[in-house]
């Protein structure tokens, strides 16, 4: 079955972002197809390459990137939500004249159309919500 996930929660802010990546891993391990993970709202912080959690804590960024490397999972960070919160690709940082880029490898910036596209191409959508 084809799944897409929508992630609103920032990593390390609560449990929700960790639940999302664990669920994503379980999906592909069971042979389901993960069409897209769409990071929206505070979820866009998942795509920051600058996260450096202590070694004895979960590395959520590394877990997402492993899904990308091993299964080619489409990790899309909403560009509008990301600009507001300071998650920028190299080209966006240049265009917006910001001093640095931080979009992690494996993630791409995309428009909200990618969310609509995911609903059109998935059998199931599962949302992982924030704590606010």
């Amino acid at each position: 079955m084809i799944f897409s996930l929508v992630v609103y929660s920032a990593p390390h802010a609560g449990e929700s972002a960790a639940t999302a990546v664990r669920f994503a891993r379980a999906l592909v391990d069971q042979g389901h197809r993960l069409y897209r993970v769409f990071f929206y709202g505070d979820g866009v912080h998942s795509g920051s390459a600058l996260a450096a959690p202590p070694q004895d804590e979960q590395d959520l960024l590394g877990q997402w990137q492993a899904l990308y490397r091993e299964h080619g999972v489409d990790l899309v960070v909403c560009i509008a939500a990301a600009q507001r919160r300071g998650v920028l690709s190299q080209s966006e940082a240049q265009r917006l004249e910001r001093p640095a880029a931080n979009l992690a490898e494996g993630f791409e910036l995309g428009g909200l159309g990618q969310l609509a596209d995911a609903t059109a191409h998935s059998d199931r959508i599962v949302t992982f919500g924030g704590s606010a």
Partner: peptide, 19 residues
């Protein structure tokens, strides 16, 4: 809560794609 605005933006974006 930012989700109020970002939710409406998502609705408008989907509608703009005929979905």
């Amino acid at each position: 809560n930012a989700l109020a605005r970002e939710g409406l933006e998502a609705v408008l974006a989907a509608a703009a794609m005929d979905q």
